[in-house]
């Protein structure tokens, strides 16, 4: 008996090197898709072969925003909606880092929507993983910019009357280098996508369609987490050739998954470097251009006192 306990204690979690085991159990509900998303992320990083010491993860606020806290990387849990500009600063200031943003649909597309389209436009070399559960989970089931037309939420008691965003369409239209959509049921393909993004330069965007059994399904008759996964299985199709702008998600249509965009275009930093290089000779006489300085010998500089001498 005692022997058995010792054996149990010795057993380690297979992802212990990338998870903060001292923070388990996590706060997510049973049946939530975030566990699968994090598993795919960890497996994807392993597969990509990136250095964990040189990989950072930035989250915003919300259920998905808590991912940063559970992954044993340099991790930053920022303000609501602002993970992308934070990650942009982090990446540009240390270009050796592989930077992931891991956040939810409300965080990245409602309050943070502007940052997403601009980071995609600039093609900043960061990877954005958006877990889309169609609702604000942590705050109690309010309407999201992804809530399908007609779906119920706690701020849409008569059914949602706003048109939702199609996330992959926005990312692609804004200029992302890589755009994919998977559900949490597509564990293997999602893992591959994350590995691809980790090693791909430019702005990479992956939407993970994820079940929210506690709030979304309860309000919309979706059943348990397992029921929702089964529903994903029947509803999703894989079509890499699909036009990402033409595949919105509704309550009951096909969930079109795939890698829709995978292009190589110059990143923000590459463009900065190319721009400066092309102008270099302009700057060769830089000191002369600063001729509003009169070169004076070092020791003759008088110490300035900025206030009056009374």
């Amino acid at each position: 008996m005692a022997n058995n306990t010792a054996q149990l204690q010795e057993k380690t979690h297979p992802m212990e090197d990338l998870l903060r085991m001292d923070r388990m159990p996590h706060i997510w509900c049973s049946g939530c898709g975030l566990g699968s998303a994090v598993t795919a992320f960890v497996e994807g990083l392993k597969k990509a072969g990136v250095s964990y010491d040189k990989t950072a993860i930035v989250s915003g606020i919300g259920c998905t925003g808590r991912v940063a806290g559970y992954v044993r990387l340099d991790s930053y849990h920022t303000t609501h909606g602002r993970a992308i500009p934070f990650a942009t600063g982090l990446k540009l200031a240390n270009r050796d880092l592989t930077v992931f943003v891991f956040s939810g649909d409300g965080d990245l597309f409602a309050i943070g929507g502007n940052h997403l389209i601009h980071a995609a436009r600039r093609n900043v070399d960061i990877n954005v993983i958006c877990v889309n559960n169609f609702i604000y989970g942590m705050t109690g089931g309010q309407n999201a910019p992804t809530t399908p037309l007609g779906a119920y939420s706690s701020t849409a008691p008569f059914g949602n009357y706003e048109m939702p965003f199609n996330l992959v369409g926005i990312a692609a239209a804004s200029g992302a280098s890589y755009v994919a959509r998977w559900t949490t049921m597509h564990a293997r393909r999602l893992t591959d996508s994350i590995a691809t993004a980790a090693n791909k330069k430019g702005f990479c965007f992956i939407e993970i369609v994820s079940p929210c059994a506690t709030v979304f399904a309860r309000k919309n008759g979706g059943g348990t987490g397992l029921d929702l996964l089964k529903e994903f299985q029947t509803r999703s199709i894989i079509d890499h050739e699909a036009d990402p702008t033409q595949i919105p998600l509704t309550m009951d249509n096909e969930i079109v998954c795939g890698e829709f965009v995978n292009e190589d275009s110059p990143t923000f930093w590459e463009n900065v470097q190319a721009g400066i290089k092309s102008q270099l000779e302009k700057f060769s006489n830089w000191e002369e251009m600063q001729s509003n300085s009169r070169k004076i010998p070092h020791k003759t500089i008088r110490k300035y006192t900025s206030s009056r001498d009374s």
């Binding site: 920022t78 303000t79 500009p85 934070f86 600063g89 982090l90 540009l92 200031a93 240390n94 900065v272």
Partner: peptide
């Protein structure tokens, strides 16, 4: 750019502030 630093004109001041925090964390 002449000092091999980074200049970025962000989309708004919210992003600017978040961005300099990120850069700060890169040391």
């Amino acid at each position: 750019p002449l000092l091999q630093g980074v200049f970025i004109q962000y989309e708004d001041e919210i992003a600017s502030m978040a961005g300099i925090l990120g850069a700060s964390w890169a040391g």
